[in-house]
Amino acid sequence: MDHMPSDFEPCEGGCTCGHIRYQVKSDPMITHCCHCRWCQRQTGTAFALNALIEANRVTVLSGDIEELTIPSPSGQGQTIARCPKCRVAVWSNYHMGGLRERVRFLRVGSLDNPDRFPPDVHIFTSSKQPWVILPPDDQAVEEFYDVDNTWSEESLSRLETLDQAAGMEKPWRQQRRPAK
Rank of each mutant, 00 (worst) to 15 (best):
M4R: 10
F8A: 03
G13L: 06
G13K: 00
T16G: 09
C17H: 08
I20K: 07
I20Q: 02
Q23M: 09
V24D: 01
D27V: 11
I30N: 01
T31A: 04
R37S: 02
T43R: 11
T45P: 10
A48Y: 01
L52D: 00
L52W: 07
L52C: 10
L52M: 12
E54R: 15
A55S: 15
N56G: 08
E66Y: 11
L68R: 14
L68D: 09
P71T: 14
S74H: 02
Q78F: 02
T79D: 06
T79V: 14
R82D: 02
R82S: 15
C86Y: 04
V90W: 04
V90C: 14
Y94V: 10
H95R: 15
G97L: 06
G97W: 00
E101K: 06
R104M: 07
G109C: 06
G109F: 06
L111K: 05
N113M: 04
P114A: 11
F117M: 11
P119Y: 12
T125C: 10
S126Y: 07
P130C: 03
L134G: 03
P135Y: 02
P136D: 05
P136T: 07
D138K: 01
Q139N: 14
V141L: 03
N149H: 08
T150C: 07
T150I: 06
E153D: 05
E154M: 04
L156P: 08
E160T: 08
E160H: 04
Q164W: 03
G167E: 07
G167W: 04
K170H: 10
W172H: 15
R173K: 02
Q174L: 06
R176W: 12
